[in-house]
Design a protein around this nucleic acid. Structure first.
Lengths: 342, 342
DNA sequence: GTGAAAGCGCTAACAT
DNA sequence: ATGTTAGCGCTTTCAC
């Protein structure tokens, strides 16, 4: 079923039917009702391609997902983010176009998306310091929103980010309040923007308390189980071992837990652990998992906000940068451990 | 830059330019070279919408991802699957259209995708016994491939699936070979097709050895950490406790590990564990994680195969059902435990 | 309030 | 080997 057939069927012109369906005011309510009834009756939906060819708007948003040889952070994050963004698109009758490309082809993909006019805007993921993609997207003059921030001078673009710095500052201060004085940090790779900010927050808290952070108790590595394991073993085996750990991802924390068990220590008694993990899909129904305490702030939510922001930008045709900084919630569980007096 | 401009620029007709770009044989090699050079020079890429409107093919594949209130299995699986499928689409110049919809809207979404002609085919996820979506997709006469199988009589559609049954049969036999005689199964919800097959495989092995499977040692629940924990506690606390467990997902296995630790048992000595997990993105670089032994078979690979199969079907315009059954690899690690003599 | 006609950017007969 | 023309399904002036 298409417009032509539907209109002849109704004895109306394509124009009128189109106008009725798209809620143009000049159509009489009587015909509009008749048209809409017929449309649903005959299961009519406007062909997106034709529509976007005619209007110039594609009603689609592009997400470019670079796939690197090294598995990096990206994978687990995306499911949640995409789901959040997707919900927003669905509600707003937009399509989501996913391009999974080898990271070396990322630039070409952006160019093509812009050239083929197949999307009205794009979401950019995983920014790195001085990210060249930002300049590229600007030069292509296509609306875009960045998930995360590239920590350079140029903040002249729209982004949605979690307040990683404050999150880790709060986590550290929370432990200081419990009486801990030696904290360990098991962080992601610090060339990633978020990891850098997390470390900054960790250090902020130390400065506020006048406590010197021990470089030996701050490690940075790939977010993997074995990295968590090895880091925890190393730290906890030291003469000056930490009494609490802040871990930068769930998967690393699983390794940390294994290390603690292997060393004959007990969580919450000998060592307290707080983890930060943005991906709630790991957790049953988003609940706090019983193993660890998590500072929760969902990437799912970030996805929704990015999508909404981008749609707003497109709708308003106003590209002045917008920013959203998400605060995290600190949820405290058993394993954080009882108050330790010095 | 569009065809019109490019063609006037070259002093050729749109047709010739189009033909040159699309590798039609009737164009002289000289002009083809000239045209292609100009195209790259001016950064020209054909507008997808216009192209698909003209050809009738959209060069896009749809993935419908139902988002349920209960978090179910779906989430962690998708990242990997989508990544695999996406790679194949990229290589074949197809777009991937993702629709994230509340599961009650799933049917409507399929109808719209077909009606709007926005995709050439769809991939269906998470089939359930006697799944109504299969009839729907057939009635819409849109090419589709199912990831997984619906275990009813009607196998008259294309699918790609992991051999879950054999995987669990092998896992159980592997443990029997080690001398174990009481095995526990911690499985996903058995209204899901794959979980049912896994149980069947588990039972197959028992039958082959003439060992009766104890119903008390076969549990089925949501794939969550706490379900794994509770199930393991229950089983291991019994008078007739199992000496080995087969766990149906990594996340449940994490709970199992916690239970084992809490009960003062030691993995590999008191209790052996084999897990099956299709999602390699959890694992660092796809390597065997050091905690558990896994029967590995990547959903990522399944994604690639689904995508390729669908593209083949579309290209061949031949909808006779095709099937691919993926065998799993059993990777053995320390924690499976030493040979236990009876 | 409704309709006729042009056009979005491309491909595919049908010429030549 | 290249060009002319019509048309994919829709929206959008412009007329009435």
């Amino acid at each position: 079923m298409n417009l032509k057939k539907l209109s002849t069927l109704l004895g109306l012109s394509q124009t009128t039917v189109s106008r009725a369906l798209n809620d143009y005011p000049e159509v009489s309510e009587a015909t509009r009702a008749r048209v809409k009834a017929a449309a649903t009756a005959h299961n009519y939906t406007a062909n997106t391609r034709a529509k976007s060819l005619a209007t110039g708007r594609s009603m689609a948003i592009g997400h470019v997902i670079p796939i690197s040889t090294r598995h990096e952070i990206v994978n687990p994050i995306f499911a949640d983010f995409i789901a959040g963004a997707g919900e927003v698109y669905s509600r707003n009758n937009h399509d989501m176009l996913l391009s999974v490309v080898p990271d070396k082809d990322e630039e070409r993909t952006y160019r093509e998306l812009a050239g083929k006019a197949s999307v009205d805007g794009v979401i950019m993921h995983g920014p790195r310091p001085n990210d060249p993609r930002i300049k590229l997207l600007k030069s292509l003059s296509i609306p875009f929103v960045v998930h995360g921030r590239a920590s350079d001078g140029d903040t002249d673009y729209s982004w949605v980010d979690v307040n990683n710095r404050r999150s880790f500052e709060r986590a550290a201060n929370f432990l200081f309040d419990l009486g801990h004085v030696r904290l360990g940090l098991i962080n992601g790779l610090e060339f990633m923007d978020f990891a850098r900010r997390r470390k900054d927050g960790f250090l902020d808290a130390h400065r506020q308390r006048g406590i010197a952070a021990d470089p030996a108790l701050m490690v940075s590595g790939e977010m993997a189980e074995d990295v968590g394991y090895q880091s925890a073993r190393d730290m906890l085996g030291r003469a000056e071992a930490p009494t609490a750990l802040i871990v930068s991802s769930m998967i690393m924390a699983i390794g940390v837990r294994r290390a603690i068990g292997d060393m004959g220590l007990k969580m919450g008694r000998d060592i307290s652990v707080i983890i930060h993990d943005d991906v709630l899909s790991y957790l049953p129904n988003g609940a706090d998992i019983p193993i660890f305490t998590a500072t929760k702030s969902s990437v799912h939510h970030a996805g929704q906000l990015c999508a909404q922001m981008l749609l707003d930008i497109i709708r308003a045709k106003d590209q002045t940068p917008r920013h959203t900084l998400l605060e995290t919630g600190l949820t405290v569980g058993e394993s954080t451990g009882p108050l330790r007096q010095r």
